[in-house]
Computed example of a mutant assay.
Amino acid sequence: MMKQRKVPMRKDIISQEMKPKKEMVRIVKTAEGEISIDPTGKKSGRGAYVSLDPEAIKVAQTKKILEATFSIDVSEAFYTELFEYVDHQKARQELFGANK
């Protein structure tokens, strides 16, 4: 019988729910104060996770959740980039299954 591996969970900064790390994307703020999408989850800096839900990204933008989390101004361009990334990843999960 296969041993159940522990699924790494992370807290979604938008919904405040704990979700599997695979279903989320990490956003990182570097020491220089720059914010970026971290697909590998390995960049150094302060990280926060958001779920792969395009609607949630819109909510985050409206409520300025990233600004509050990272204490910096977040450009509309970054939210657009994040929305497109999340939208694309979600579509891939639906196409190929969540385990890819």
Results as ranks from 00 to 15, higher is better:
30 T>E: 06
6 K>Y: 05
20 P>I: 14
65 I>E: 07
27 I>Y: 03
100 K>W: 13
75 S>D: 01
64 K>W: 02
65 I>F: 13
34 E>K: 07
10 R>S: 03
5 R>V: 02
66 L>E: 10
68 A>G: 11
54 P>D: 00
13 I>D: 10
66 L>A: 12
57 I>N: 04
15 S>H: 08
77 A>D: 14
96 F>V: 11
58 K>Y: 07
16 Q>H: 13
70 F>I: 05
37 I>G: 11
23 E>I: 00
41 G>Y: 05
41 G>I: 00
38 D>R: 03
69 T>H: 15
66 L>Y: 12
22 K>V: 10
85 Y>N: 03
72 I>T: 15
63 K>N: 15
60 A>I: 01
64 K>M: 07
57 I>D: 03
26 R>D: 04
52 L>Y: 05
16 Q>M: 11
68 A>L: 15
6 K>G: 05
10 R>D: 01
34 E>R: 09
1 M>H: 04
5 R>E: 13
22 K>S: 10
17 E>R: 14
46 R>E: 12
34 E>L: 04
75 S>Q: 03
1 M>N: 02
61 Q>I: 08
45 G>A: 13
61 Q>M: 09
33 G>L: 00
91 A>K: 10
57 I>M: 04
60 A>Q: 01
51 S>Q: 14
90 K>M: 03
80 T>E: 12
27 I>F: 05
98 A>T: 14
42 K>E: 08
19 K>P: 01
55 E>I: 03
16 Q>T: 09
97 G>S: 06
77 A>E: 14
95 L>D: 06
81 E>H: 06
72 I>C: 07
7 V>L: 08
79 Y>R: 02
18 M>I: 09
72 I>S: 06
12 D>C: 11
88 H>W: 10
16 Q>P: 01
14 I>G: 04
1 M>A: 00
69 T>R: 15
20 P>Y: 15
35 I>E: 01
30 T>F: 08
81 E>P: 01
26 R>S: 02
44 S>D: 15
84 E>L: 11
71 S>W: 04
